[in-house]
Design a protein around this nucleic acid. Structure first.
Length: 418
RNA sequence: CGGGGCGUAGCGUAACGGCUAACGCACUUGGUUUGGGACCAAGGGACUCCGAGUUCGAAUCUCGGCGCCCCGACCA
C-alpha cells in the first residue's frame, strides 16, 4: 500500500476528549475514528489489525472443532421474553415506524439455542460447537477507555452443546487452552491470567481471562503460587477457588477482562426446551457452554501493553503491515529504486506499507514509529551507495544494513522466527 | 444513573460584555529544502453545540437542552 494513497492521516495533536493510551495512539495513528461515545470506525489500518486478530481467533476456534456461523444482530423480542432477559439494562432496543420492537444482540444464547434445537435432536448429533465473530451492541451506562469498553464492538462468541456434564467439562478445559494460544499469538499471554469470577445464576463460578494493565477496570488477586487469579467480586470465596493460596500469597492488580467462559449448563436449553434422544430413546436436556472474546477489546489491550513514548509496537502477528518501506530524499534515482523494492516485496506477498510521500525524514520517521509496523526499511541515497537498505526493528533501538539483493530473505527469516 | 469538568475552522488552542472572532497544525498554489515533526510567499476554510433570555451590544452573563471526557455506581 502506498502511504500517499492510504485513507486516514496521522496527527500530532491528541484529541482532548480521549485520555486512554489505546484511543490516543489509535486515533493519532489513523487506525480508528470516533463517531460517538463508545462507537468507532475502523479505518484501513485499524481494520487490517482487527481482521488479523479475528483470524487468529478463528483459527483457534476451528482447531477445537468450532464451526463458524453468522447469526443476526437484529433479534426477536419473543425469545428474549422466554429467558426473561428482554428488560436487562444493557439491551438496546429498536422500534419500527409501526411500533414493532426488536432487540440488538449483546449476546446470542436466545438465537443459538433455538437454532441448535432445530437441527440437533439425537445424541449422534452431539457434541458440537458453533461460533461467530460479529458486532455486538451493549447499552453501557458509561463507555470508556477508547475501544476497551464500547457500545458497539466486535465479539467472538462460541456456544458448545453436550449430552452430559463431563463432556461439557472436557470441552471447557479445551477452550481454556485455545484461549491461551490466542493470547500467546497476539503477544499478551505473559500478562494474562486465568481468573475465577462470579458465575451468575446457573453456575457458581465462571472463568475470565484478565490481562494486566493500568487501563483495566477490574481488580484481581493473583496467587503467586499457582498463577491463577481471583476477581475481587468473589474474593470472599477464595478458599473454594484456590485452597492452596493463602491470603499472603496474593498480589492485587488492575486488569482488563479479555475473555470469559461460562458453563451455562441447562440455563438456556431448559428455557427453550432443548432436548435430545439418548441411546435408549429417552429424552434429556442438553448441556451448554459459552465462550466470549472481543477482538476489538483485544486490539485496545495490545496497544495498552505494547507501546513506547513514540507509538505502538505491534506484534508481527497482528501488525497492519509487516514492513514499512520508507524512502528519503527527493532523488529520482532513489525513488525509482524504492519503487523497485516495493514491487519486489509485493511480488513476494510481503505486506508492505510504502511511504512514498514527499515529506521530510523527520515526519516519516515519527509516523513510522507511531504506526508501529515491526520492520522498517529505509531507502536513501546514503544506503544505495552500498546497494543496501537500512533495517530497523520497531521493538529494538539499533539498525542494520542489508544488501538489497538479500532483503527478501532477511524479511522472510524475520517473519518466520517466533 | 450520581458527582466534577469541557463544548470556538478537520485537530489543538486564544479572545476584558465592545472594531471584520485570532494563532499553531492540517489543507490549496508557487518556490526553496530533504536522515528525526523544515522554510518563504500567497490563499481557502467558523451561523463560536442548539434554543431562549439579559443588554445599545453576547463566543463571553443567565436559564434550558444536547454532546464529550473523567471519578463513582453498574457491567448474567
Amino acid at each position: 500500500m502506498k502511504q500517499s494513497k492510504l485513507f486516514g492521516k496521522t496527527t500530532k495533536e491528541i484529541p482532548k476528549d480521549e485520555t486512554s493510551i489505546n484511543a490516543q495512539y489509535l486515533i493519532r495513528g489513523g487506525f480508528i475514528d470516533k463517531s460517538m461515545a463508545g462507537v468507532y470506525t475502523y479505518l484501513p489500518l485499524g481494520k487490517r489489525v482487527l481482521s488479523k486478530i479475528e483470524n487468529i481467533i478463528r483459527e483457534e476456534m476451528d482447531a477445537i472443532g468450532g464451526q463458524e456461523i453468522l447469526m443476526p444482530a437484529l433479534q426477536k423480542k419473543e425469545d428474549w421474553l422466554i429467558t426473561g432477559r428482554w428488560d436487562i439494562d444493557v439491551m438496546m432496543k429498536v422500534k419500527t415506524y409501526f411500533d414493532k420492537e426488536y432487540g440488538l444482540g449483546w449476546t446470542h444464547e436466545e438465537v443459538v439455542t433455538p437454532l441448535a434445537k432445530k437441527y440437533a435432536r439425537s445424541y449422534k448429533d452431539f457434541p458440537f460447537s458453533l461460533y461467530q465473530i460479529q458486532t455486538k451492541f451493549r447499552s453501557e451506562k458509561r463507555a470508556k477507555s477508547g475501544i476497551l469498553r464500547g457500545r458497539e464492538f466486535s465479539m467472538k462468541d462460541l456456544y458448545s452443546f453436550h449430552t452430559n456434564e463431563e463432556d461439557l467439562n472436557q470441552f471447557y478445559e479445551q477452550s481454556k487452552k485455545a484461549y491461551f494460544k490466542i493470547f500467546d499469538r497476539v503477544g499478551i499471554k505473559d500478562k494474562t491470567y486465568l481468573t475465577f469470577a462470579a458465575g451468575g445464576d446457573f453456575s457458581k463460578y465462571s472463568h475470565e481471562f484478565q490481562t494486566l494493565t493500568s487501563a483495566g477496570e477490574d481488580i484481581i488477586y493473583i496467587c503467586n503460587k499457582c498463577k491463577i487469579a481471583i476477581n475481587q467480586e468473589i474474593i470472599a470465596d477464595l478458599k473454594n477457588c484456590c485452597p492452596e493460596c493463602g491470603n499472603k500469597n496474593l498480589n492485587k492488580k488492575k486488569a482488563i477482562e479479555t475473555g470469559n467462559i461460562f458453563k451455562l449448563r441447562r440455563r438456556f436449553s431448559e428455557a427453550f426446551n432443548f432436548k435430545f434422544s439418548d441411546e435408549n430413546g429417552k429424552e434429556n436436556v442438553v448441556m451448554m457452554g459459552c465462550y466470549g472474546m472481543g477482538p476489538s477489546r483485544l486490539m485496545g489491550t495490545i496497544v495498552e501493553l505494547l507501546n513506547d513514548e513514540k507509538g505502538i509496537i505491534w506484534p508481527k502477528s497482528v501488525a497492519p503491515y509487516q514492513v514499512h518501506l520508507v524512502y528519503l530524499g527527493d532523488d529520482k534515482v532513489v525513488l525509482k529504486e524504492a519503487e523497485k523494492i516495493y514491487e519486489s516485496l509485493q511480488k513476494e506477498k510481503i505486506e508492505v506499507l510504502y511511504d512514498d510521500r514527499n515529506e521530510s525524514a523527520g515526519v516519516k520517521f515519527k509516523d513510522s514509529d507511531l504506526i508501529g509496523v515491526p520492520l522498517r526499511i529505509v531507502v536513501s541515497n546514503k544506503t544505495l551507495k552500498n546497494d543496501s537498505v537500512e533495517i530497523k526493528k520497531r521493538n529494538d533501538t539499533g539498525f542494520e544494513m542489508i544488501m538489497t539483493s538479500e532483503l527478501v530473505d532477511y524479511i522472510r527469516e524475520y517473519l518466520d522466527a517466533k
